[in-house]
């Protein structure tokens, strides 16, 4: 006789979803910006990427701290005599701490080019752009990946124990990182920059959006593969997947994650923005809308996966 008590996890909610989302997005922003700096010498994108990653990481860390039930002990993550270096929580703490600092130094190197006295004093940091760019890229990808491993290693929740979980989180982080440019950076730069910037902007936007459509398509396949595997998996995995496709998370999943977060942005990009080989206020706005939809969908994706977590406790 097998008896189980299916308990839905309720302790990781919006705060952790927000943190996983910000960590993933921030994680891929620096690698993208560093790529453009190396290839085109694009300092604007370098500065924007570094700054965006730093701000997002600080916000993510704030959410993480808010979620801690005993924040007074947070330093134990560094000073505990019994520190557990094989826990993803510990490994993640070190990765995100290092990434936040290195991304900050990377951003500061670019800011020193601004004609603002405080930043000009940081000119010596320019020489660090190369090493910090490489290091931050490695740490950033690690940040995005670890958010998946963190869930995959939580043994109680069988739905999260899927090998595809880190892959999905990395794919989602990449699409967020690509979209962060169109959603946040491009509208600001469009307001302030010259014709010279606009010419580069078209090329970059088209490259980012083209890659983003592939990424979103891949994410869609991954997501359905994971749901399909779960529907044929253990009883708890079946119940988690059912919550997403037909349970109380179905509105968030179908409308928020699939439609708003993947299908509509793909339609906007394929149908409109990818066909426009010039830059105007309207195109920047439409691209920004598509970007924000992807970002919102990715936040909802993380919340839906967390909320669908079920622990099947054996009673006999």
């Amino acid at each position: 006789m097998e008896q189980m008590l299916m308990v839905r996890q309720e302790f990781w909610g919006w705060l952790i979803a927000g943190y996983l989302f910000l960590g993933g997005t921030a994680g891929l922003v620096v690698p993208i910006s560093y790529y453009y700096y190396r290839r085109d010498g694009n300092k604007v994108l370098g500065a924007a990427g570094g700054l965006l990653a730093f701000i997002a990481m600080v916000a993510g860390l704030a959410l993480l701290l808010l979620d801690l039930g005993r924040p007074q002990n947070v330093l134990a993550l560094f000073t505990s005599p019994r520190l557990n270096l094989t826990s993803w929580m510990t490994i993640g703490t070190y990765i995100i701490s290092a990434y936040t600092i290195v991304a900050g130094v990377y951003a500061a190197g670019f800011l020193s080019w601004l004609r603002i006295p405080v930043f000009r004093m940081m000119g010596f940091l320019r020489r660090l752009i190369g090493p910090t760019g490489i290091l931050a890229s490695v740490l950033g990808v690690s940040t995005a990946l670890y958010t998946g491993f963190l869930l995959a290693a939580a043994r109680g929740v069988e739905f999260w124990n899927q090998p595809l979980m880190p892959v999905l989180f990395l794919a989602s982080a990449l699409s967020c990182g690509l979209c962060a440019y169109c959603a946040i950076v491009a509208p600001i730069l469009f307001k302030v920059k010259s014709r010279e910037f606009l010419e580069a902007a078209v090329k970059i936007r088209l490259e980012l959006q083209r890659l983003d459509t592939y990424t979103l398509g891949f994410e869609l396949i991954l997501l359905f593969a994971m749901i399909d595997i779960a529907l044929g998996g253990t009883p708890a995995q079946r119940e988690s997947a059912s919550l997403l496709v037909a349970g109380d998370l179905a509105p968030i999943f179908w409308v928020g994650v699939i439609l708003v977060g993947i299908i509509i942005p793909m339609m906007i990009m394929f149908g409109y923005t990818l066909r426009r080989h010039e830059e105007s206020a309207k195109i920047v706005l439409v691209s920004a809308v598509a970007g924000w939809l992807v970002l919102i969908g990715s936040l909802l994706l993380r919340y839906a996966i967390l909320s669908a977590g079920i622990i099947p406790a054996p009673l006999l």
Partner: peptide
């Protein structure tokens, strides 16, 4: 004295034997 309240243990226990005690 060492617990930070991250609740990872709650998610990791396959017996769901842990819960969050608000007082703690």
């Amino acid at each position: 004295a060492l617990c930070i309240g991250c609740k990872y243990c709650v998610e990791a226990c396959p017996y769901n034997a842990r819960y969050v005690n608000e007082a703690l």
